[in-house]
Amino acid sequence: MFAQWHRARRADGLALRRALPDRLLPLLVAAMAVLAALALAGATGAQILSARWSSGAASMLTIQIPDPEAPATAKTTPPLTRADAVLAALADTPGAARVHRLDKAELATLLAPWLGQQNDFALTLPAIVELHMQAARPADADALARRLAATAPGTLVERNAEWGERLGRLADSLHSCALLAVAIVVGIAVVLIAATTRAGLAARRLPIELIHAMGATDGYIAGRFARRTALLAFIGGLAGSVLALPLLVLLSRVAAPFATSATPPPTPTADWATGWTTLAHTLPTPLVATLLALAPAAALIGWLTTQATVRAWLRTLP
């Protein structure tokens, strides 16, 4: 009795397993999921870079002090060098969060792309000082330059906000392009699911017309197709998420130096607990949440598309 009930429960009068094959649609959805994951990764990365570049560059000034070891113009007790006098003046700047003078090793690293790894320079290099301002207190570069020139003539103050704004606009453009790519991928997925559903409807036209004439509602028939399509789309979305995960981890490790000054994330391991911890530190939290939501989103798109396609097709029946 139980076996008969189980077979009856699993019976499929519409033969949806033949109408909607369980191989082609998941494969197509998996490919769309990989493309969507990569596009969403680009959108998330562009947004993070835009926020970092805009806020970081806008809140930092670069000060160059020629002949830093010469005596300062201002009379102080004890006498200060030009570099020390500028550092003292910067420390008293309203809204200053951090003042950092680059040491010889940092200057060598900064000039290495142009001068190589040679540390002995023939000319005296100017002192380079980074002034980090509080976000709520933007610096007046012109007023600061005049004040420092009175202490150490020839001191240059470079405002980085303009470049930060340009980089921010570039990142915003990349973010918009990535979102457009996501929209295109979703549109292609909708077209593919609709075409697959219409092919399944055409293959089972006679049984559908028969049960429809016997009183089956549009909601019942559309629901049977939609549940089948949603399951296949969920499987495809899950497979696409798994396939996209190594690519996203690799891209995150490559982009890490541009997004943070911290050390690169550790290499993922085979241990599950350590692997999830490493993944949380490797991928941005919004991207992890998006990756987890990819399969449910694919199932929802499949369900809605199939419902609309089947109901529209049923309205054409006599």
Score class of each variant (00 low, 15 high):
residue 77 T to D: 11
residue 250 L to W: 12
residue 171 A to Q: 06
residue 48 I to G: 03
residue 212 H to F: 08
residue 310 V to G: 06
residue 207 P to G: 08
residue 50 S to M: 14
residue 14 L to N: 12
residue 151 T to V: 15
residue 226 A to M: 06
residue 74 A to S: 01
residue 280 A to L: 09
residue 12 D to N: 13
residue 31 A to L: 15
residue 103 D to R: 10
residue 209 E to S: 15
residue 229 T to K: 01
residue 141 A to K: 12
residue 38 L to S: 01
residue 39 A to T: 10
residue 109 T to H: 12
residue 249 V to S: 05
residue 230 A to H: 05
residue 58 A to S: 15
residue 92 D to P: 00
residue 305 T to S: 14
residue 312 A to I: 07
residue 169 R to E: 14
residue 82 R to I: 11
residue 241 S to I: 00
residue 161 A to I: 11
residue 58 A to V: 13
residue 97 A to W: 06
residue 275 G to I: 02
residue 318 P to T: 09
residue 62 T to C: 02
residue 111 L to I: 11
residue 160 N to P: 00
residue 17 R to W: 12
residue 46 A to R: 02
residue 28 L to R: 00
residue 278 T to M: 02
residue 17 R to D: 14
residue 182 V to H: 00
residue 98 R to H: 14
residue 32 M to W: 00
residue 107 L to V: 15
residue 301 I to F: 07
residue 182 V to Q: 04
residue 184 I to K: 00
residue 111 L to E: 13
residue 200 G to T: 15
residue 154 G to K: 05
residue 159 R to L: 09
residue 190 V to F: 05
residue 256 A to L: 11
residue 153 P to E: 03
residue 298 A to V: 07
residue 139 A to W: 06
residue 229 T to P: 06
residue 175 H to N: 10
residue 81 T to A: 04
residue 285 T to D: 11
residue 314 L to G: 09
residue 133 M to A: 08
residue 64 Q to M: 13
residue 208 I to R: 10
residue 91 A to M: 00
residue 61 L to T: 05
residue 68 P to H: 13
residue 31 A to T: 09
residue 44 T to H: 00
residue 11 A to V: 07
residue 194 A to D: 12
residue 78 P to N: 02
residue 292 L to Y: 07
residue 93 T to M: 07
residue 23 R to V: 14
residue 243 L to E: 01
residue 265 P to E: 08
residue 297 A to I: 13
residue 184 I to C: 04
residue 261 S to A: 13
residue 112 A to Q: 14
residue 139 A to L: 06
residue 263 T to N: 09
residue 242 V to W: 03
residue 262 A to S: 12
residue 97 A to H: 11
residue 209 E to N: 11
residue 218 D to S: 15
residue 34 V to G: 01
residue 165 E to M: 15
residue 83 A to M: 04
residue 175 H to C: 11
residue 233 A to G: 05
residue 115 L to F: 14
residue 134 Q to M: 08
residue 311 R to S: 12
residue 97 A to G: 02
residue 207 P to Q: 10
residue 188 I to C: 03
residue 150 A to Y: 04
residue 51 A to T: 10
residue 257 P to M: 10
residue 249 V to Y: 01
residue 76 T to Y: 04
residue 88 A to N: 03
residue 126 P to A: 09
residue 204 R to H: 05
residue 66 P to T: 10
residue 140 D to W: 07
residue 196 T to M: 14
residue 311 R to E: 08
residue 34 V to D: 03
residue 183 A to D: 01
residue 64 Q to T: 08
residue 288 V to M: 15
residue 162 E to H: 14
residue 185 V to S: 00
residue 301 I to D: 07
residue 202 A to F: 06
residue 246 P to E: 00
residue 99 V to E: 05
residue 150 A to K: 10
residue 210 L to G: 07
residue 203 A to Q: 10
residue 54 S to G: 15
residue 153 P to T: 03
